[in-house]
């Protein structure tokens, strides 16, 4: 047994879980899939007094799809979401990104809520949430609230969640017509954390870029939109090579790179340009398909 001693509770309802969380807030950790928390416990990087295991709380792993969008319960296993979105054009970003989250055995257990709560800067799910303009739903004994993904990730493993709050769901609004999505990352092996990655969305009308969300991850201390690059593309033709080159240069120059990790700062910066360049070429092909 490697973890330090802890008290263990496996509440059977959300209310019970929230009461426990309120009671122990700073000394407790929610145990979701355990795919990040259990390693931290085993390495004693985490030693909470309480583990609140929410795997037995009913209803937290429900996926609900409506005309408005996709509501994914926090305890939905990463692979369960992947199965749901596998052939859904609106959720192609999730379908492309999730296979890069660790390995099958880890995705069978790891949850979407856990990925979002952890806010690892190299994780795919937080970047997807921003690129899809998702909303994070939080609950506590004080009530429920919603935080847009764009305001949720504050820094390295840091989010807008209060210690007594639990993520109960992530809501992805259905993209309006014209939105195209693409995913790419560079990792040493399939399933490893990325050295750099991109979740990209672009609304294209008659081959012109109307809107863009270019979210880089595994680069800064949190998933980050390349706003200057987005602005360099909006209003331009998807086939405009000069505009694309300017956007790539802007992304490369403007992005904040967190030092440390598996590769150098300059290499990451280079990958940012490469990932965007490749993705813009794909968008041109996709935009052409739809409108031409």
């Amino acid at each position: 047994m490697k973890p330090a001693l802890f008290s263990y509770a496996a509440p059977r309802s959300l209310d019970e879980a929230l009461v426990l969380l309120a009671e122990h807030a700073d000394d407790a950790q929610i145990l979701a899939g355990g795919q990040s928390l259990a390693p931290m416990l085993n390495l004693r990087l985490a030693a909470p007094d309480w583990l609140i295991d929410v795997n037995r709380v009913p209803g937290l792993d429900v996926i609900e799809e409506t005309a408005e969008g996709l509501r994914v319960g926090a305890m939905t296993r990463q692979n369960a979401l992947l199965d749901h979105v596998a052939d859904a054009p609106d959720w192609s970003l999730l379908a492309q990104a999730i296979p890069h989250v660790a390995h099958r055995g880890i995705r069978n257990r790891g949850t979407i809520g856990g990925s979002v709560a952890l806010a690892d800067p190299a994780a795919e799910a937080p970047a997807c949430a921003i690129a899809l303009d998702a909303v994070i739903r939080l609950a506590s004994v004080r009530g429920e609230r919603e935080v847009p993904a764009s305001d949720f990730f504050l820094g390295l493993y840091e989010t807008a969640r209060e210690p007594d709050e639990m993520i109960v769901a992530v809501f992805y609004p259905r993209p309006a017509p014209g939105w195209l999505f693409g995913f790419d990352e560079v990792a040493r092996r399939r399933g490893d954390y990325a050295l750099a990655g991109l979740c990209a969305g672009m609304r294209v009308e008659e081959a012109f870029v109307r809107d863009a969300r270019l979210v880089f991850f595994a680069v800064g201390d949190r998933p980050t939109r390349a706003r200057v690059a987005e602005d360099a593309l909006i209003g331009r033709n998807v086939a405009d090579i000069a505009a694309r080159a300017a956007a790539c240069a802007a992304a490369r120059a403007g992005i904040e790179v967190m030092p440390g990790g598996d590769c150098g700062v300059e290499y990451k910066r280079r990958l940012v340009g490469v990932l965007l360049e490749r993705q813009l070429a794909r968008f041109e092909a996709m935009g052409g398909d739809r409108d031409g």
Binding site: Y8, G34, N55, R104, G105, I106, R109
Partner: peptide
């Protein structure tokens, strides 16, 4: 440590017996 729980492979070192 791969084992099968409720039909799916998972890491036996990342799940507690209590679960």
């Amino acid at each position: 440590c791969t084992i099968v729980v409720d039909g799916s492979c998972l890491r036996g070192c990342l799940m507690f017996a209590a679960q």
